[in-house]
């Protein structure tokens, strides 16, 4: 039942120009990594890893926002909804079908990008001997958590799509949450846990705490440090972040289904 919708959406994504163009851009950028990396005098390998991870992250972000925000909106805009939502599907499976199709697409794209990036990094590291070994497991973990981060973002885009009639909230709401979610940890720490003793006004502090717990903590998904520099990968961090991802995404999807089920299509 549900697999139908999922396959339908996969077909849509694969035939969509957005995906084709973005995958093209990503592969081009990754191929150029060795050329960019030699710009660094001392840390060619580190730079090649940094660049590869950044390019992958950037393209995945674009994919997540464009596919996530446009999928539901486009169906409404082109009046596909009156044909699809009147099939014997629940509204929930319609939304989840979209979500899982985009999620799988992100995973597959990331897998391809990582493969190309691996070649680019190996090649770059051959150009200048680094004192650090390349730790592939750490690199793969960093990409994997990037994917999880953007899957969570897709859920958010779908939540926005489920309540909005226009394109604006899904696109700009998702972008704002991406930016805010990436910065929330740093800002929160700047305002609260300060060894120097910045005095933040009490109401502001409560507001900051509220927002910090409300918005997705996307900074937590950043495992790039241990992929680039000799920092141990914390297994505790991996587990907590994974749990956080599961719970947060489920809540977002739950809300999306809740609102979408109540929505009318006059």
């Amino acid at each position: 039942m549900f697999t139908n919708l999922y396959q339908l959406n996969l077909k849509w994504i694969i035939r969509d120009r957005v995906l084709q163009a973005l995958v093209g851009v990503a592969l081009l950028l990754l191929v150029l990594v060795p050329a960019f990396s030699v710009l660094s005098m001392r840390q060619v390998q580190e730079l090649s890893i940094t660049l590869s991870l950044s390019f992958i992250s950037f393209v995945l972000a674009l994919l997540a926002i464009l596919l996530g925000a446009s999928s539901v909106w486009r169906d409404i805009e082109k009046r596909y909804t009156s044909a699809v939502l009147t099939l014997p599907y629940s509204r929930g499976s319609y939304l989840l079908g979209k979500f899982f199709a985009i999620a799988v697409c992100l995973v597959c794209s990331a897998a391809i990008f990582t493969l190309v990036a691996a070649v680019a990094i190996s090649f770059s590291s051959g150009l200048y001997q680094s004192s650090l070994p390349i730790r592939w497991l750490h690199i793969f973990t960093a990409v994997a958590f990037d994917v999880l981060k953007y899957v969570l973002l897709v859920a958010i885009a779908i939540l926005f799509s489920s309540i909005s009639t226009s394109f604006f909230l899904p696109i700009f709401g998702t972008i704002s949450l991406l930016l805010a979610g990436n910065a929330s940890q740093e800002v929160f720490e700047y305002l609260t846990k300060d060894s120097v003793g910045v005095k933040t006004a009490k109401p502001l502090l409560y507001a900051a705490k509220g927002i910090y717990y409300l918005i997705p903590n996307l900074g937590a998904f950043n495992f790039k440090v241990s992929a680039i520099y000799p920092v141990a990968l914390s297994s505790q961090g991996v587990i907590y972040t994974l749990l956080y991802f599961l719970v947060y995404t489920t809540i977002i999807l739950y809300l999306a289904v809740y609102f979408f089920s109540r929505r009318e299509f006059p």
Partner: peptide
């Protein structure tokens, strides 16, 4: 049959 139907045009 919806009024003025429109179907997934990529199929």
């Amino acid at each position: 049959l919806p009024e003025n139907p429109s179907f997934y045009d990529f199929l």
